[in-house]
Structures are given as C-alpha cells and as structure tokens.
Design a binder for these strands. Structure first.
Lengths: 122, 122
DNA sequence: AAGGGTAGTTCCCTATAGGAAACTACTTCC
DNA sequence: GGAAGTAGTTTCCTATAGGGAACTACCCTT
C-alpha cells in the first residue's frame, strides 16, 4: 500500500546520492580519469606531453578538460618563463585524494575483463 | 627531445586505462549508480518501486538503464506469476562487487563537499 | 625567411543522452 | 464499466558531448 519512496528517503541515503552526483559531475566526460591518471604517474607535464600521453585526445578537449580540472583544484597550471613559454601541469595534493577511486575503477575493470574471459571458457 | 608518449606506454598503464574505460562505459550515464545503490540497499524492488526511489528518473530511462545493467549481469529481472504480473529487480552477487567503488564515489563526494565548506570559512 | 616546436582557441559539424508525454496491455478493485 | 495499478514502449524534441580542421601567436633553429 506504500506509494512513496522509502529506501532513499533516509538522510544518509540522500547525502550519499548527492555525493555520488557531485563526484560524477566533477569527473564527467571521456577524458578526465585518463588525464588525472597520467598526471598522477608522471608529475609536471606540458600540454604537448599530455597530448601525446593521453591517446586519442585532441587539443580542444584536452584544453577544456584541463580547465575543468583546474577549476576544481584537481590539477595546477603553471606558466614557466622559459624562452618559448611552456606550461607545467601537475596534480594537486587534493587531486591525489582521487587515487583510491581511480584505483577502484581500474581494479573493478580488470576483474570485469577477467570474469568475461572466465565465462567464455565454460 | 622525446616526441613520444613514455608514461602511458607501459603495459600496466595500458591495462589500467583500458580497465577504466570499461568500467566507465558499463556505469555510464546519469542513473546507473543511483539504481545500483538503491538495489544494494533494498533488494527485490519492482519497476514502480524503483521509479519512486530513484528521484527524477522517468520510465524510459529506468527501463533502458535496467536493460543495460541486466545485460551486464549486474542486476537480475524476474517476472513473477502474480495476478497482475509484477517484476522483481535485484542486484546480482556480481553487481555487489561494485559496492567498494560506489562507496569510494560517495566518500570522495562527501569529502569534496566538506572541503568546499572548509574553504569558504577562510 | 621557412620550418617546427610551444600552447592553445575558434568554428562547424554529428551523434548521443536524456526528458516529456502519450500509448499499450493486462488485472483488480469499487 | 471506470479508475487505478502493474510494466513498460514509442515518438518527438532539445541540449550537450565530442571530434576535425583551421587558425593565432610567439619563439628558436637552420
């Protein structure tokens, strides 16, 4: 006879749902995880370095995604006063807090692949 | 003088990147985490139950997302032979392996909110 | 002065995601 | 018989994501 939501009405669920939406919106898009992952591996990379490291990305998307990440304090952008100006992108200490999440994503994906292979052998 | 990718060329990085892409594609879209989260909390829910629990979702998206999740063995769909037919959706044991990832997402999002509040108090 | 490297921006285009509303089909309650 | 509940499907629409290519602008090397 209940007609209303019951499970997700508790404050704790509301907060969790909101938190998941926040995380998803900050890390939305095709490239953010790859960019962050790359910057966590090799710190201090130039724009062109990233363009080469992140396979398939173009200048437009790289530029836009880096701006998003910088806005959210996950990466820092430093213009160096070298002769042809260069820019150093690196992960912030706050950005590093994403490591466990990125690791979880990678871990689950690897296990998923393995489970597909296992399933095929039946 | 290097002109080629160096960091992401190692096999381990390749595998990680691929794994992250896999996970992202399986959990893509606005609703999958919410649906999965709801099904993990309260098992065995009908279509209309989910429609009520997952705030804002419409029938079309719910139906489509459930099909995606079922295809990937993350949720199961059972038609019950009740008088007006009802359907029971529940999380599979494999779907439950996503719990740590979902928890990580929620945890990071909660900490993110908190850090925004902390930053404002300065 | 031409070529190549730095770091982007701008414009144009298409594909996909996602929402609203109407519709199907079947059953039970009043 | 009509309302309301079950579980969806279909159609139409818009907004956003994302890609390609060209372009800017500055500097160094040859």
């Amino acid at each position: 006879m209940r007609k209303k939501a019951v499970i997700n009405n508790s404050p704790v669920c509301q907060v969790r749902m909101q938190a998941i939406s926040d995380t998803m919106s900050i890390l939305s898009g095709k490239w953010k995880f790859h960019i962050l992952g790359t910057l966590i591996e090799g710190d201090k990379l130039g724009f062109m370095d990233l363009l080469r490291e992140v396979k398939g990305i173009g200048t437009k998307m790289l530029s836009k995604e880096l701006q998003d990440l910088e806005m959210n304090q996950l990466v820092s952008r430093t213009v160096m006063n070298t002769k042809p100006i260069t820019v150093e992108y690196s992960i912030t200490k706050y950005g590093k807090t994403l490591s466990p999440l990125i690791d979880e994503m990678a871990k689950w994906g690897i296990e998923y692949r393995q489970s597909m292979i296992d399933a095929e052998r039946d």
